[in-house]
Design a protein around this nucleic acid. Structure first.
Lengths: 155, 155
DNA sequence: CCTTAATATAAGTATATACATATATTAATT
DNA sequence: AATTAATATATGTATATACTTATATTAAGG
């Protein structure tokens, strides 16, 4: 029963769950690293999230919202809005598919140019993170994140 | 030079950076797990993010926005808004400090009650994730996330 | 063919997030 | 003491995110 707990006990519970909670630690690290990426891409007028999405568009020619959302682990409604942001920047085009419910997303020449400029900035962060944890721990981390992502998809 | 790349080459680059990018994988996993937590806490009208924040408030009696923001790795302006959400739900109180610029945040009785209800739901997810990766990989993951969080703060 | 069901995306609403700027308050300088 | 600098929080603006609902389009059943 928490209601009877002293401040000290509450404090210990808070620290314990904070240290152990996968969700919290994921979000916190994502926030902190997110600012790193945003800062790096800032000269290109790009956010880290936008770099990832643009890269996904580049690698999936003429994909629809639904097709992109799947590997990104993102709601289609979310993706729909994120695509508009890239479209307004002139980095992607959106056009009706043969099935007129669908929207085919493609990267523009300008989008490819921006990716080209962004790539070395991305690599610099990658190197920095590898420098901090070492390549093995980074690779383990990436594998674990991918396993967890897989795991949530299977009900 | 990306501009000259074929679709196939772009596709391979996209897959390679997608698999290697720490930021992207963090965000994707955070999104997917976030939905798991949100679903679990839904009966309490709570999101995963709100559970973590409420737990942090519980463990830091009379902390200010600034004091809370630090360990959460969150901008004070963000935290300021997130606290309002908990306040409107009646889970925390906000009152002026002796230094009248500051706001002292405290958990309410109702907040403690909600935490109490949430705790077993949180543990169920924790067990599920440990069941998927094993306790060692989960602990490694948590350590790595904490190291990365530390790393971004320096410099 | 027409109605109904299924599907794809967008729009409505709410929260999470950050940066820049505004506001209020305290501390420091002269 | 009065002015200036520093600090704490809130607000403006924009993006990211998800759930629910609306809209448009295609597919299925009769």
């Amino acid at each position: 029963m928490l209601s009877g707990k002293t401040d000290q006990e509450l404090k210990e519970l808070s620290i314990k769950t904070g240290n152990a909670c996968v969700g919290f630690n994921l979000r916190r690290t994502a926030r902190l690293l997110g600012r790193l990426y945003d800062e790096a891409f800032e000269p290109l007028g790009l956010k880290g999230t936008q770099f990832s999405l643009l890269m996904a568009v580049a690698g999936n020619k003429d994909a629809t919202i639904g097709e992109l959302a799947q590997p990104l682990g993102m709601e289609r409604s979310t993706l729909s809005r994120n695509i508009v942001v890239l479209q307004k920047k002139g980095l992607v085009t959106v056009e009706e598919g043969e099935d007129r419910r669908q929207q085919k997303i493609s990267i523009t020449e300008q989008g490819i140019f921006v990716l080209q400029e962004a790539l070395p900035l991305w690599e610099r962060i990658q190197e920095r993170l590898i420098g901090e944890l070492g390549v093995e721990r980074i690779n383990n981390l990436l594998e674990d994140l991918q396993s967890l992502s897989q795991g949530t998809k299977e009900k």
